[in-house]
């Protein structure tokens, strides 16, 4: 028993050391974000710069309207995440619990779009948005990508695991598909909702190319593009860049912490089969 306990400590300790090595870049970025630039670019001295100032954080708001970009990104990512979860769940329900001709064909086509590279569709989509006159509007950011093949796949797998009897029983009680979906299926899909929330929020939060192509007005720009502009224009302001990136990763971490409990189970049910 004692040996077992010792092994447990050793193994846990080892994994914690590996985990700390993994997050060192974040720790370093975070500490540096409180250091003046002169301290960051000091050749001699310790590995971590001395954190002594808040001026980097004040600077990013003054030099480029950080808060604005942050809120823009928050709005676009949240909106798309909610819509994608809803469309994925609805289509997952249709593809797993309803029978109709061509079901497998349509699902197969949707699924196969997962392997279409962004490089294929982005030029025509760019041209399409230009023709629609949607450049520099949020319509261009929000309209494409509201249906996600991965999400449909995830929900089809997990809803497929819900016993048919539950759906049939509800039907006998006179409930229609929409009612069954909203009252029964959605509440039972908490795991998949969590998994997809984490993935889609991140994908939209870090998306670079599409907002870069669509938005030219700096006030409407999203944070990921803003970070790049920031680094280009103030090439040497590493403190500011670290402050900006430190804040930029907070929302995704929050989403992860909120949904993490159901996340693993959601991933397991979705892709294990």
């Amino acid at each position: 028993m004692r040996a077992r306990k010792m092994w447990s400590w050793i193994l846990t300790g080892m994994l914690f050391i590996l985990a700390l090595i993994t997050i060192i870049p974040f720790v370093w970025m975070f500490i540096s974000s409180f250091a003046p630039n002169s301290e960051i670019v000091k050749v001699s001295g310790g590995i971590f710069p001395k954190p002594t100032t808040l001026s980097n954080y004040r600077g990013i708001q003054e030099k480029f309207d950080f808060l604005r970009l942050f809120l823009n990104s928050l709005f676009v990512s949240s909106f798309k995440t909610v819509v994608i979860i809803y469309t994925s769940a609805a289509l997952g329900y249709v593809f797993s619990k309803m029978r109709f001709r061509g079901r497998n064909l349509i699902f197969g086509i949707v699924l196969s779009t997962m392997m279409v590279p962004w490089a294929v569709t982005i030029i025509p989509q760019y041209e399409m948005m230009t023709k629609f006159g949607w450049l520099d509007t949020y319509k261009a950011l929000l309209a494409p990508g509201l249906v996600n093949a991965f999400g449909v796949f995830l929900f089809r797998q997990s809803i497929g695991g819900i016993p048919d009897e539950i759906v049939e029983a509800a039907k006998l009680d006179g409930a229609g598909d929409a009612v069954i979906f909203h009252r029964i299926i959605l509440p039972m899909s908490r795991n998949s909702i969590s998994a997809l929330a984490i993935f889609t929020f991140l994908w939209n939060w870090e998306d670079y190319l599409w907002p870069f192509l669509m938005i030219t007005d700096e006030k409407k720009q999203l944070l990921s593009v803003g970070l790049k502009m920031f680094s280009g224009r103030y090439g040497t302001d590493y403190g500011g860049l670290f402050a900006a990136t430190s804040i930029a990763i907070i929302p995704v971490l929050v989403v992860y912490v909120v949904f993490q409990k159901q996340f693993i189970a959601g991933v397991a049910s979705g892709s294990g089969k």
Binding site: I23, L202, Y208, T245, A248, I249
Partner: peptide, 14 residues
């Protein structure tokens, strides 16, 4: 959570 942290942070930032 710690091992997953790099994965859930935006690529541009890291």
């Amino acid at each position: 959570g710690l091992f997953y942290m790099p994965t859930i942070t935006p690529m541009v930032a890291v």
